[in-house]
Write a protein that binds this DNA or RNA. Sequence first.
DNA 1: GCTAAAAACGTCAGTCTCTGACGCCAAAGA
DNA 2: TCTTTGGCGTCAGAGACTGACGTTTTTAGC
Lengths: 188, 188
Amino acid sequence: MPRSGEAVRQRLQRAALELFTEHGFDQTPVEAIAARAGVTERTFYRHFADKREMLFDGETELRDLLVQAVAAVPHGMKPLPALRAAFHETVPLFERNRPLTEPGVRLIAETPALQERSLAKRALLVNALTDALRARGVNPRTAPLCAQVAMDTFAVATHRWMQEPSVPLHDQLDQAFRELRLAAAALK
Amino acid sequence: MPRSGEAVRQRLQRAALELFTEHGFDQTPVEAIAARAGVTERTFYRHFADKREMLFDGETELRDLLVQAVAAVPHGMKPLPALRAAFHETVPLFERNRPLTEPGVRLIAETPALQERSLAKRALLVNALTDALRARGVNPRTAPLCAQVAMDTFAVATHRWMQEPSVPLHDQLDQAFRELRLAAAALK
DNA sequence: GCTAAAAACGTCAGTCTCTGACGCCAAAGA
DNA sequence: TCTTTGGCGTCAGAGACTGACGTTTTTAGC
């Protein structure tokens, strides 16, 4: 029974995902997760802030990658094209983790408490993108709107990609942003 | 001590808002709210699904009004203009309840648990708008994107309206949608 | 290889949220 | 006046977290 810290964390994640998919999120006490991982309930809360948090581990990684990608976009590019380019940079990350995240998204989709947390994580991403845009010199007033709209477009693209695996995520992204442009063009 | 049901509900809401603004949301047990309202903790949960839910009572009213407004928009209008028109219909509702909702939004802004619930409520609104758009014959595939983007634009407008009360909400709305059009026009 | 600091874990006690079951009492209708 | 219904109180309990403290393991320095 190793005690290296990271091993415990991974055992907790595996145990939680198994129990969640078997009995559901709400019907799985933290005590059961800890027991399957060979650890105490108290240790669970030393690795994760709360029960929901363990389902959203890759979010910080995605956020850092995204912020870095926005900063790396060529100067002079308008906000939405810049964000679209940044999202394209994250495609490999999604394609690589696809089989791993699939049971997670299904769990989130059918658990209201997890949907709330998912939306909160998305809001954190939007805030980070807003700061990244402002760092590029984008109008501080319009930066939040651009970041939010781009994030929604990205979310639509990934959602479609989950349901229709045949179309590459790159194409889903371009398609979604194209629809955004067309819809907005009808405004004036 | 009346026992009419609705009176208890209102006393609970008043007591909660007072205690929340005084000690904060997390530092206010449900037991204290019920005590100030002259009832038991159990009665609180007979009126509200959970502790957060009492802060979001007007959401269903807003949703119904919004769905109805989308349905009432003239035929042939494109999704985003239709949604913009529908949002304009809700302006009186916001202007009327402004002093009442002000302490609520401040509380939500500084309480992560309430932000999560707020985002969840917004997602419900987006789903309702998506259905309303589809009922108008909008492309079922693009309806979610339009509803989401319009909701974000509306949120930006109301947010600015809260901070700069001098500019009417109608103008904030038009301004935000104008920025959306300009930002999206730079995409192709 | 030995020892001391630091990190990880266990144990215990406790608060708070939320739920089910049961009984009581007031109000509305026959 | 009697019955029914709905709102409420009481009780018991599960589950999510947190703080405090002691113990064990790992790491670092000699």
